[in-house]
């Protein structure tokens, strides 16, 4: 036990120290800022005006912020389901002993390596284009009228377009996490199961899935974090000014800190800080819930 104590201290200290140096001061400053009215994000404390909960109250009373929260929730939930199922499916196929595994894996992950600016431009100006878009051509090729005529980018469908484009890129990332989780499961399980006459699907259901709990937790945590920070794609899908279909809390925060679009609008870094605090709380809550749902204790091998 004593030995463990020194080990805990020695092993944990560097990470905790790094964390404290980089994050603690900014986080506490952010929490404090959320109770003040502050024009510039780096303004000296003497310029802060205490406003109590006013920032939070204003946030909850602003339609646009509520829309942004709704958007992020939709991205998290629907996008999450879509990405996780595809990622798990691909990971399962990849690790089922197929050929060209490396090539498949590399290609599926590839969109992650390409700059989001290029990908977003490609989706917006090519795939979804109502004039010469890829989806339009596919629709025409297959004589699917609805697909050929579908207006992906109008105000009623832009969110769906954004979700598809974003998820397409994210599948590879989560697939890698799933795949490395599956790869770590010992082959003896499968060999034993095969001897017992279990089919591949059964093996997946009764061996792979239960043993993937931990990795699934990681995946959900990472997905939640990247959803909370959803920013770049939103900006790329609504250049210059934000859009009701694509605005997310971080974009809203950004507008309050640096001003919106080309017009000079009121700035309040305190509101930005309040958004940051709310997002952090959401992420921690999700993390806690995940912890409860995916208890690691029952995994033993």
């Amino acid at each position: 036990m004593k030995k463990n104590k020194t080990m805990i201290v020695v092993f944990l200290t560097p990470a905790v120290v790094m964390f404290s140096i980089i994050f603690l001061y900014p986080i506490f400053r952010t929490v404090a800022m959320s109770f003040f009215k502050i024009e510039g994000v780096t303004d000296a404390v003497s310029k802060w005006q205490f406003s109590g909960l006013a920032n939070y109250i204003k946030l909850f009373n602003t339609e646009l912020f509520r829309i942004s929260m709704w958007n992020i929730f939709r991205i998290w939930l629907f996008g999450g389901i879509l990405v996780m199922s595809l990622a798990l499916l691909f990971a399962a196929i990849l690790t089922s002993g197929i050929r060209f595994k490396n090539a498949f894996r590399a290609i599926i992950y590839m969109p992650n390596v390409v700059s989001a600016v290029a990908l977003a431009t490609m989706w917006l100006q090519y795939v979804f284009s109502p004039k010469f878009g890829l989806f339009k051509s596919i629709g025409e090729l297959l004589h699917w009228e609805w697909l050929a005529k579908f207006q992906w980018l109008d105000p009623s469908h832009l969110f769906m377009a954004l979700l598809i484009a974003y998820c397409f890129g994210m599948v590879g990332y989560h697939m890698l996490i799933f795949a490395s989780g599956i790869e770590r499961i010992g082959t003896d399980y499968y060999e034993a199961a095969t001897l017992d006459g279990a089919s591949r699907i059964q093996q997946f259901r009764y061996i792979t899935l239960p043993l993937l709990k931990g990795v699934t937790k990681t995946n959900i945590t990472m997905w939640s974090i990247s959803s909370a920070g959803f920013f770049l794609w939103s900006q790329l899908f609504s250049m210059v000014v934000s859009n009701t279909q694509t605005i997310t809390p971080v974009v809203y925060m950004y507008q309050n800190i640096f001003g919106a679009g080309n017009s000079m609008t009121e700035r309040n870094a305190g509101i930005g800080a309040a958004v940051g605090v709310l997002l952090s709380v959401c992420v921690v809550l999700i993390f806690m819930v995940c912890d409860k749902v995916f208890k690691d204790d029952d995994i033993e091998f």
Partner: peptide, 13 residues
Amino acid sequence: AAMGVPATMIVLP
């Protein structure tokens, strides 16, 4: 929690 805080709020201070 730290990962939930937007980068702007970390980097600028």
